[in-house]
Amino acid sequence: QGFPGIGRAATPAEVKAWDIDVRPDLQGLPGGSGSVARGQQVWEGKCASCHGVFGESNEVFNPLVGGTTADDIRTGRVANLQRPDYPGRTTLMKLSTVSTLWDYINRAMPWNQPKSLSVEEVYAVTAYMLNLGGIVADDFVLSDANMAQVQQRLPNRNGMTTAHALWPGRDLPGVAGAPDVKAAACMRNCAVEPRVASILPDFARNAHGNLADQNRPVGPQRGAVTATAAAT
Protein backbone atom coordinates (compact mmCIF):
# COMPACT_ATOMS: atom_id res chain seq x y z
CA GLN A 1 0.00 0.00 0.00
CA GLY A 2 1.50 3.29 -1.13
CA PHE A 3 -0.73 5.43 1.07
CA PRO A 4 -0.67 4.20 4.67
CA GLY A 5 -3.53 5.36 6.84
CA ILE A 6 -5.87 6.38 4.02
CA GLY A 7 -9.20 4.73 3.31
CA ARG A 8 -10.63 1.49 4.67
CA ALA A 9 -12.53 -1.57 3.44
CA ALA A 10 -16.27 -1.10 2.92
CA THR A 11 -18.54 -3.41 4.90
CA PRO A 12 -21.03 -5.60 3.02
CA ALA A 13 -23.92 -3.66 4.54
CA GLU A 14 -22.43 -0.41 3.30
CA VAL A 15 -22.04 -1.71 -0.25
CA LYS A 16 -25.60 -3.01 -0.12
CA ALA A 17 -26.90 0.38 1.02
CA TRP A 18 -25.35 2.27 -1.87
CA ASP A 19 -24.84 -0.20 -4.74
CA ILE A 20 -28.32 0.24 -6.19
CA ASP A 21 -27.62 0.45 -9.91
CA VAL A 22 -29.26 -1.96 -12.34
CA ARG A 23 -27.48 -2.62 -15.61
CA PRO A 24 -29.00 -3.60 -19.00
CA ASP A 25 -27.90 -7.20 -18.34
CA LEU A 26 -29.95 -6.88 -15.10
CA GLN A 27 -26.93 -7.13 -12.84
CA GLY A 28 -27.98 -5.38 -9.67
CA LEU A 29 -31.69 -6.02 -10.06
CA PRO A 30 -33.12 -7.08 -6.67
CA GLY A 31 -35.60 -9.97 -6.54
CA GLY A 32 -39.25 -8.99 -6.37
CA SER A 33 -42.34 -8.27 -8.41
CA GLY A 34 -45.28 -5.90 -8.88
CA SER A 35 -48.51 -5.95 -10.84
CA VAL A 36 -49.89 -3.36 -13.23
CA ALA A 37 -52.88 -2.98 -10.91
CA ARG A 38 -50.71 -2.26 -7.89
CA GLY A 39 -48.68 0.02 -10.12
CA GLN A 40 -51.73 2.03 -10.99
CA GLN A 41 -52.31 2.64 -7.28
CA VAL A 42 -48.73 3.79 -6.77
CA TRP A 43 -48.89 5.92 -9.88
CA GLU A 44 -52.08 7.65 -8.94
CA GLY A 45 -50.93 8.18 -5.39
CA LYS A 46 -47.35 9.25 -5.98
CA CYS A 47 -46.73 10.11 -9.64
CA ALA A 48 -49.82 11.34 -11.43
CA SER A 49 -49.82 14.72 -9.70
CA CYS A 50 -46.70 15.61 -11.68
CA HIS A 51 -46.79 13.37 -14.75
CA GLY A 52 -50.54 13.19 -15.34
CA VAL A 53 -52.88 10.25 -14.90
CA PHE A 54 -51.70 8.73 -18.16
CA GLY A 55 -48.12 9.97 -18.05
CA GLU A 56 -49.08 12.54 -20.64
CA SER A 57 -48.54 15.74 -18.66
CA ASN A 58 -45.91 18.25 -19.65
CA GLU A 59 -46.45 20.45 -16.68
CA VAL A 60 -43.27 19.61 -14.78
CA PHE A 61 -41.53 17.54 -17.45
CA ASN A 62 -41.92 16.02 -20.91
CA PRO A 63 -44.71 13.42 -21.29
CA LEU A 64 -43.49 9.97 -20.29
CA VAL A 65 -45.93 7.94 -22.36
CA GLY A 66 -47.22 8.17 -25.93
CA GLY A 67 -45.97 8.06 -29.48
CA THR A 68 -45.29 4.31 -29.62
CA THR A 69 -47.32 1.69 -31.53
CA ALA A 70 -47.89 -2.04 -31.53
CA ASP A 71 -45.86 -2.13 -34.72
CA ASP A 72 -42.92 -0.52 -32.89
CA ILE A 73 -43.12 -3.30 -30.29
CA ARG A 74 -42.74 -5.77 -33.13
CA THR A 75 -39.83 -4.01 -34.89
CA GLY A 76 -38.08 -2.56 -31.89
CA ARG A 77 -37.84 0.80 -33.69
CA VAL A 78 -40.19 3.68 -32.90
CA ALA A 79 -41.44 4.84 -36.28
CA ASN A 80 -42.32 8.34 -35.14
CA LEU A 81 -38.67 9.00 -34.43
CA GLN A 82 -38.10 8.78 -38.17
CA ARG A 83 -40.67 11.51 -38.86
CA PRO A 84 -38.90 14.89 -38.70
CA ASP A 85 -42.24 16.61 -38.11
CA TYR A 86 -43.25 14.50 -35.10
CA PRO A 87 -43.59 16.87 -32.14
CA GLY A 88 -41.76 15.91 -28.99
CA ARG A 89 -40.37 12.64 -27.79
CA THR A 90 -41.73 10.73 -24.82
CA THR A 91 -39.72 8.60 -22.45
CA LEU A 92 -41.17 5.39 -23.84
CA MET A 93 -40.32 6.42 -27.40
CA LYS A 94 -36.64 6.68 -26.51
CA LEU A 95 -36.29 3.94 -23.90
CA SER A 96 -34.22 1.07 -25.29
CA THR A 97 -33.34 -0.76 -22.06
CA VAL A 98 -35.98 -1.58 -19.47
CA SER A 99 -33.34 -1.64 -16.74
CA THR A 100 -32.98 2.12 -17.28
CA LEU A 101 -36.59 2.75 -16.36
CA TRP A 102 -36.51 0.52 -13.30
CA ASP A 103 -33.21 1.93 -12.09
CA TYR A 104 -34.23 5.52 -12.57
CA ILE A 105 -37.58 5.24 -10.81
CA ASN A 106 -35.84 3.36 -8.01
CA ARG A 107 -33.14 5.97 -7.51
CA ALA A 108 -34.86 9.23 -8.33
CA MET A 109 -38.65 9.09 -8.17
CA PRO A 110 -40.90 10.47 -6.83
CA TRP A 111 -38.88 13.58 -7.64
CA ASN A 112 -39.45 15.20 -4.27
CA GLN A 113 -39.04 11.92 -2.34
CA PRO A 114 -36.45 9.85 -4.16
CA LYS A 115 -35.63 6.42 -2.75
CA SER A 116 -38.88 6.27 -0.80
CA LEU A 117 -40.41 3.47 -2.91
CA SER A 118 -40.18 -0.19 -1.90
CA VAL A 119 -38.73 -2.66 -4.40
CA GLU A 120 -42.26 -3.99 -4.97
CA GLU A 121 -43.56 -0.50 -5.70
CA VAL A 122 -40.81 0.08 -8.23
CA TYR A 123 -41.69 -3.15 -10.03
CA ALA A 124 -45.36 -2.26 -9.93
CA VAL A 125 -45.14 1.29 -11.16
CA THR A 126 -42.69 0.28 -13.87
CA ALA A 127 -45.19 -2.36 -14.96
CA TYR A 128 -47.91 0.28 -14.98
CA MET A 129 -45.92 2.64 -17.19
CA LEU A 130 -45.15 -0.19 -19.60
CA ASN A 131 -48.84 -1.02 -19.61
CA LEU A 132 -49.73 2.60 -20.43
CA GLY A 133 -47.49 2.16 -23.46
CA GLY A 134 -49.22 -1.09 -24.41
CA ILE A 135 -46.04 -3.04 -23.85
CA VAL A 136 -47.43 -5.35 -21.17
CA ALA A 137 -51.00 -6.48 -20.59
CA ASP A 138 -53.35 -5.15 -17.91
CA ASP A 139 -52.89 -8.23 -15.74
CA PHE A 140 -49.12 -8.35 -16.05
CA VAL A 141 -46.90 -8.87 -13.04
CA LEU A 142 -43.39 -7.57 -13.62
CA SER A 143 -40.60 -9.41 -11.78
CA ASP A 144 -36.89 -10.08 -11.87
CA ALA A 145 -37.78 -13.34 -13.63
CA ASN A 146 -39.50 -11.73 -16.64
CA MET A 147 -37.64 -8.44 -17.04
CA ALA A 148 -35.50 -9.94 -19.81
CA GLN A 149 -38.61 -10.94 -21.77
CA VAL A 150 -40.12 -7.47 -21.35
CA GLN A 151 -36.89 -6.07 -22.73
CA GLN A 152 -37.67 -7.90 -25.96
CA ARG A 153 -40.91 -5.93 -26.34
CA LEU A 154 -39.56 -2.40 -25.84
CA PRO A 155 -40.71 -0.28 -28.79
CA ASN A 156 -37.30 1.30 -29.26
CA ARG A 157 -35.02 -1.54 -28.16
CA ASN A 158 -33.24 -1.47 -31.52
CA GLY A 159 -33.17 2.30 -31.70
CA MET A 160 -29.68 2.97 -30.37
CA THR A 161 -26.31 3.06 -32.03
CA THR A 162 -22.80 3.47 -30.69
CA ALA A 163 -21.31 3.90 -34.16
CA HIS A 164 -19.93 7.40 -33.64
CA ALA A 165 -16.73 9.13 -32.65
CA LEU A 166 -17.94 10.82 -29.47
CA TRP A 167 -17.05 8.06 -26.98
CA PRO A 168 -13.60 8.58 -25.46
CA GLY A 169 -12.94 4.85 -25.16
CA ARG A 170 -12.67 1.91 -27.52
CA ASP A 171 -14.87 -0.76 -25.98
CA LEU A 172 -18.27 -0.04 -27.53
CA PRO A 173 -19.57 -1.76 -30.70
CA GLY A 174 -18.93 0.24 -33.83
CA VAL A 175 -17.24 3.15 -32.07
CA ALA A 176 -15.69 5.27 -34.80
CA GLY A 177 -12.26 6.80 -34.87
CA ALA A 178 -12.92 9.66 -37.25
CA PRO A 179 -15.43 12.44 -36.56
CA ASP A 180 -18.52 12.44 -38.78
CA VAL A 181 -18.23 16.05 -39.93
CA LYS A 182 -15.18 16.98 -41.94
CA ALA A 183 -14.83 20.69 -42.56
CA ALA A 184 -11.96 22.52 -44.18
CA ALA A 185 -10.49 25.83 -43.10
CA CYS A 186 -10.94 27.85 -46.29
CA MET A 187 -9.41 31.34 -45.88
CA ARG A 188 -10.18 33.40 -49.03
CA ASN A 189 -13.23 33.78 -51.28
CA CYS A 190 -14.88 30.78 -49.72
CA ALA A 191 -17.93 29.39 -51.46
CA VAL A 192 -20.59 30.63 -49.09
CA GLU A 193 -23.47 32.96 -49.55
CA PRO A 194 -23.71 34.99 -46.34
CA ARG A 195 -27.47 35.45 -46.45
CA VAL A 196 -29.41 35.63 -43.17
CA ALA A 197 -31.81 32.69 -43.05
CA SER A 198 -32.91 32.89 -39.42
CA ILE A 199 -33.18 35.78 -36.98
CA LEU A 200 -35.38 36.42 -33.95
CA PRO A 201 -38.69 38.00 -34.93
CA ASP A 202 -39.27 41.52 -33.63
CA PHE A 203 -42.13 40.44 -31.36
CA ALA A 204 -39.68 38.21 -29.45
CA ARG A 205 -37.33 41.13 -28.86
CA ASN A 206 -37.95 41.26 -25.13
CA ALA A 207 -38.62 37.55 -24.60
CA HIS A 208 -35.36 37.37 -22.60
CA GLY A 209 -35.91 40.60 -20.72
CA ASN A 210 -34.10 43.88 -21.19
CA LEU A 211 -30.71 42.99 -22.58
CA ALA A 212 -29.39 46.38 -21.49
CA ASP A 213 -29.58 45.01 -17.95
CA GLN A 214 -27.66 41.88 -18.95
CA ASN A 215 -24.54 43.68 -20.07
CA ARG A 216 -21.98 45.72 -18.16
CA PRO A 217 -22.73 49.46 -18.39
CA VAL A 218 -19.13 50.13 -19.43
CA GLY A 219 -16.82 48.70 -22.06
CA PRO A 220 -16.70 48.46 -25.84
CA GLN A 221 -20.42 47.67 -26.07
CA ARG A 222 -23.67 48.18 -24.19
CA GLY A 223 -26.61 45.83 -24.00
CA ALA A 224 -29.43 46.62 -26.41
CA VAL A 225 -32.48 48.20 -24.83
CA THR A 226 -35.19 45.64 -25.42
CA ALA A 227 -37.48 46.58 -22.56
CA THR A 228 -40.13 47.66 -25.04
CA ALA A 229 -40.78 45.55 -28.12
CA ALA A 230 -40.16 46.82 -31.66
CA ALA A 231 -37.50 49.39 -32.70
CA THR A 232 -34.18 48.36 -34.19
Binding site: R23, L95, G159, H164
Partner: peptide
Protein backbone atom coordinates in the same frame (compact mmCIF):
# COMPACT_ATOMS: atom_id res chain seq x y z
CA UNK B 1 -17.36 -4.82 -17.68
CA UNK B 2 -20.13 -3.05 -19.59
CA UNK B 3 -21.81 0.36 -19.71
CA UNK B 4 -24.84 1.12 -17.57
CA UNK B 5 -27.35 2.79 -19.90
CA UNK B 6 -28.43 5.05 -17.07
CA UNK B 7 -31.35 7.43 -17.56
CA UNK B 8 -29.04 10.20 -18.73
CA UNK B 9 -27.34 7.95 -21.25
CA UNK B 10 -30.43 6.18 -22.60
CA UNK B 11 -33.30 8.68 -22.45
CA UNK B 12 -31.38 11.96 -22.38
CA UNK B 13 -27.96 12.87 -23.67
CA UNK B 14 -28.68 10.63 -26.67
CA UNK B 15 -28.49 12.34 -30.06
CA UNK B 16 -31.35 11.75 -32.50
CA UNK B 17 -30.03 11.20 -36.02
CA UNK B 18 -31.97 11.73 -39.26
CA UNK B 19 -32.59 7.96 -39.57
CA UNK B 20 -34.50 7.96 -36.28
CA UNK B 21 -31.73 6.21 -34.34
CA UNK B 22 -30.26 7.70 -31.20
CA UNK B 23 -26.55 7.81 -30.75
CA UNK B 24 -25.78 6.50 -27.29
CA UNK B 25 -22.77 7.34 -25.07
CA UNK B 26 -21.92 10.43 -27.08
CA UNK B 27 -19.61 12.15 -24.64
CA UNK B 28 -16.83 14.16 -26.24
Amino acid sequence: DQPWASKDEAIHYVDLMPDGRHRQYTSI
